[in-house]
Simulated assay, not measured.
Amino acid sequence: MSGPTVTEDRDGFFGPDSVTWRIHGDPSFSVGGIRALLLQALHPVAMGGVHRFSDGFRDEPWARLTRTAEYVATLTFGTRREALRAVRRVRGAHRGKSDTEPTTGRAYSVDDPDLLLWVHACEVDSLLSVARRSGMQLTQDDADRYVREQVVAAELVGCTPGTVPTTVAELAAYFRRVRPQLALTEPARLAARFVLVPPMPGWVQVLTPARPAWAGLASLGLATLPRWARSMYGLPGLALTEPATTAAVRAFRTTALAVPPRIRENPTLRAARLRVA
């Protein structure tokens, strides 16, 4: 089998005409990312693996979040060679890590395909849901195309081919099947607490607007969760109604889009635009 052409490698696995580039390059991505983390935490076994093996989540949380964001950016906007290198690093980090989750009694490996699929589905559902609520012009065909494009990302990281949802309807059906397995475990509570009120150095809290800025962003991520997930966190209604939440997400995106791209955009995205221009 021959390798990718120069154009394929330059464009990466998705390319500038993809819905993936549109959604992952939009300011709504940050809110969707927080929503995904909160949703992912509700799977006892997946969250158990994070709690057991990701020391960085507890000791160096910002470094872990940064690495995760960089991985998604490289997979989205990098060349195929760059993306495959990032995938190999992630799969290497997962390899050989296994344990038993105490609340379910399930023996698992971090790279079990069904756990990787849960993480993938939460990310895709969250990024798409928040993008649509934020006012991005996405048709139903666009939404289905995004879910279908992301199958590549799922299979690269180790999901079983043929099991990954390819449409919005299939994604919704997947969540209906998995919901009976979900629970708010103690590791999930700790993870949610970190996401909503992350540790920050004292000088950062006093001398910068980081704390209130993050609090606003995290609140949006929580408010945009599906009602059943908010109920599991004990916050089914929150202080915001659904229309108010949508209005707040749209206001956030409008404000963020007013910031110059050189400040707002991910450096990997800016480099990709120059590369494919």
Rank of each mutant, 00 (worst) to 15 (best):
A83Q: 04
A86P: 00
S134Q: 04
L117E: 01
S54H: 08
P61K: 09
T139N: 13
V90S: 05
C159K: 14
T66I: 14
R145S: 12
R91F: 03
L117Q: 05
V157P: 01
R81T: 15
S98R: 14
R133P: 02
V124C: 03
T100P: 08
L84M: 14
L138H: 09
A83R: 00
G33C: 09
Y146N: 01
L117F: 13
S98C: 14
H43P: 08
R58N: 13
A69M: 10
P102D: 11
L128T: 06
R132L: 10
E60S: 15
V157W: 07
G32L: 06
R85Y: 08
V130E: 02
F53M: 00
D141C: 07
C159W: 04
A107I: 09
G96C: 13
R95M: 08
L138M: 15
K97H: 15
F53Y: 11
A121V: 03
G33F: 02
A36Y: 09
S54R: 11
Y146V: 08
F53G: 01
D112F: 11
A46G: 15
G32Q: 03
D142I: 14
E60K: 14
F77Q: 07
E70Y: 11
L42N: 00
V110Q: 12
A69D: 04
L37K: 01
D112W: 03
A46S: 15
D99V: 04
G92M: 01
D141T: 13
V151G: 08
D59K: 05
E149P: 12
M47P: 00
E149Q: 14
R88P: 01
D141K: 07
H51K: 04
Q40Y: 11
L38T: 01
V90N: 00
R80S: 08
V45C: 09
Q140A: 11
R52I: 00
G56C: 03
L117R: 14
R106I: 15
D114K: 11
T68Y: 10
H43Q: 13
T160M: 03
L37V: 10
H43L: 06
Q150K: 12
W62E: 15
L38P: 00
R67W: 10
A41H: 06
D99T: 09
E70R: 13
S98L: 07
W118C: 00
L42W: 04
E101C: 09
E101K: 01
P113T: 12
A63P: 04
H51Y: 12
A63H: 11
G48M: 03
T76A: 00
A69Y: 13
C122N: 09
W62I: 13
A36F: 02
L115F: 03
Q40I: 12
L37T: 05
A41P: 06
L75Q: 08
Y108T: 13
P61G: 13
V50Q: 10
A153C: 06
G48C: 07
D55V: 05
L75F: 08
R148K: 11
G49V: 00
T66Q: 07
P44W: 05
P44S: 07
A154S: 12
H120Y: 02
T160C: 06
D142A: 07
E70C: 12
A121G: 10
Q140R: 09
P102Y: 14
